[in-house]
Design a binder for these strands. Structure first.
Length: 521
RNA sequence: GCCCCCAUCGUCUAGCGGCCCAGGACGCGGCCCUUUCAAGGCCGAGAUCAGGGGUUCGAAUCCCCUUGGGGGCACCA
């Protein structure tokens, strides 16, 4: 051992970290446009963003679109939209306009940086650190199959590693497609001093000669990310733990190029309820889907921060500023975390309650105005929604909302003309039809006689009826509640009536009376 | 099969050798408040700190092994 000290970058990391702490922090979020980013993915972006903001550094977004087969149109937009919605602003990266970028290392789309990778690959080939491989995908496929059969570790068998110049010329003149593979040193080891995990070491001879340039001329992730991270001056690579196994390859690449590697921090993964890596099959995991369901970006932000990081032993609800102020790599957890959607729902409720009613009303509008089939108010309700009316409704439902999407259900009775409900609901426990009918008729008369229709007058007029009718408050109020809202659970009665207004209340009370009369045997 | 990472209540976590027969939060149960539903308040159940060895006067905290879980092993990222 000890032959390849150069491969042991880790031993110097302590010193390097200190030196770099005075260097500018530059971190990146490097998603691949293969679909809408899910919450686990965006959590990585979040931690990078927090680290950049905490240290006054730069947060860079780079699109890793080096796989034409998996490219999904619209994915870049979805990624940027997700970041934007969560308030994760980037200093360099796509502008959001077509395939444009801004920043001193533009472009930030890898598909637009091909010459850079070609040059890098050529440099490695010239230096003997890489070689062209002419093996066909079919042969590699068979190789893997055989290796699996013999229970041997899969990996390239290095057939083309030591081709003679003549053999190579032969393949080239035949026009055999080729890739470029990295010549992994067969001795020594590579080590990284991971900022969250400490030192991790790998034996070089366990790594195979991985592809760095594909036959279509596009680089693989390994090459592209190393080349870009270097050229873009990335100081810290913070990525999910699934990347840890490929770190030795990256280290070896830096070494071959003669570049100083950035510091690495492998973040814990976000797991589904079954403890497996979170993925689509765990349900709606897309960030944008959470927006559709009425989660507040500040709530999701806060929740995601808590998945793998903590401020102390008790602080959970934190403003974005507080998190930025306190964020540190030292307090990142090592173990993966299950995405607990129930806690997210609770936290969302906390944030909803903190909103100024005016603000909540504004956020509710677009959701309420969606078609009923998409979770909006019943289609019979006119759009746009009456803003002034909504503003008065909001305080009554604010503390009952856990997600904005519940708004339609919680407020629909304020808007619909005719309430649909089972008349039997009007009859409260311990009451009968006659008593209820008499009560509602008495209430109707009292409300009709009201000079002013406000909370105080309503209560002053109705509460005394409890005694007059000889029933319990809950019995009378319950009946009125069903009459005016069509349901047994609703916001406080008098406030609800006040907001509903005189006309709506009278009409609904009359309808209730009519319904009861109609059910008379 | 091989390599790597991880391991405190169901879940998210605090704990970085004595303050811990383990604290907070979600969820759950009960009570209070109350015209319903919420919100809020209080109380409670819930972790022999995965198991076993060490080290130490002393271990959830350090070391080793085992077990369990996860990730990776593509001309995908």
């Amino acid at each position: 051992m000890g032959i390849t000290r150069p491969g042991c970058w880790g031993y110097n990391n302590q010193r390097r970290y200190q030196r770099m702490s005075s260097q500018p922090v530059r971190v990146r979020y490097a998603p691949s446009p293969t679909g809408e980013p899910h919450v686990g993915n965006i959590r990585t972006a979040l931690f990078n963003w927090l680290f950049a903001r905490r240290h006054g550094g730069a947060f860079i977004v780079r699109i890793e679109d080096t796989d034409r087969d998996r490219y999904i149109p619209g994915a870049v937009e979805a990624i940027l939209e997700s970041l934007h919605w969560l308030g994760l602003d980037w200093d360099e990266g796509p502008t959001g306009q077509a395939q444009e970028s801004h920043g001193r290392h533009a472009p930030y789309f890898q598909s637009q940086r091909l010459p850079l990778y070609h040059e890098a690959a050529q440099q490695l080939v010239s230096g003997g650190h890489a070689y062209r491989c002419y093996c066909s995908p079919q042969r590699l496929e068979e190789l893997r199959k055989q290796q699996a059969q013999e229970k041997r570790p899969p990996g390239y068998d290095r057939r083309c590693r030591d081709l003679t110049d003549a053999q190579r010329r032969e393949m080239e003149t035949q026009g055999t497609p080729s890739v470029v593979r990295f010549r992994v040193p067969q001795e020594g080891h590579s080590a990284v001093n991971d900022l969250v995990r400490g030192e991790v070491t790998w034996q070089n001879n366990l790594l195979d000669d991985f592809v760095i340039l594909k036959s279509d001329g596009f680089p693989t992730y390994h090459l592209a990310s190393v080349v870009d991270d270097h050229h873009m001056g990335i100081s810290h690579v913070m990525r999910a733990e699934e990347w840890l196994p490929s770190t030795p390859r990256h280290l070896l690449l830096y070494q071959a190029f003669g570049w100083e590697p950035p510091l690495f921090a492998h973040l814990p993964m976000i797991l589904g309820p079954d403890r497996a890596k979170l993925s689509k099959r765990h349900g709606a995991t897309s960030v944008l889907a959470y927006r559709e369901q009425g989660f507040l970006p500040e709530a999701l932000f806060n929740f995601l921060v808590l998945l793998g990081w903590s401020l102390d032993d008790r602080t959970e609800v934190m403003s974005r500023e507080t998190v930025v102020q306190h964020f540190s790599l030292e307090r990142i957890t090592k173990a993966g975390a299950i995405f607990n959607s129930e806690k997210l729902l609770w936290l969302n409720g906390v944030y909803i309650r903190q909103l100024a009613p005016e603000d909540l009303a504004n956020r509710l509008v677009p959701l309420l105005e969606r078609p009923a089939s998409q979770g909006g108010l019943p289609d019979e309700v006119a759009r746009p929604v009456d803003r002034d009316y909504l503003r008065r409704i909001v305080p009554l439902v604010q503390e009952r909302l856990k997600a904005l999407a519940e708004g339609a259900e919680l407020t629909s009775f304020f808007f619909v003309e005719r309430l649909e409900y089972d008349p039997a609901l009007l009859v409260q426990k311990g009451m009968d039809r006659e008593g209820t009918l008499r009560g509602l008729q008495r209430v109707l008369a009292a409300v009709e006689a009201l000079a002013s229709f406000d909370l105080t007058s309503l209560e002053a007029a109705i509460r005394p009826l409890v005694e007059e009718l000889g029933v319990k408050a809950g019995q009378l109020f319950g009946a009125i509640r069903v009459a005016t809202t069509g349901r047994t659970a609703a916001p406080p009665l008098f406030q609800t009536m006040e907001v509903l207004g005189r006309e709506r209340c009278l009409r609904k009370l009359r309808e209730a009376v009519a319904k009861l009369e109609a059910t008379k045997a």
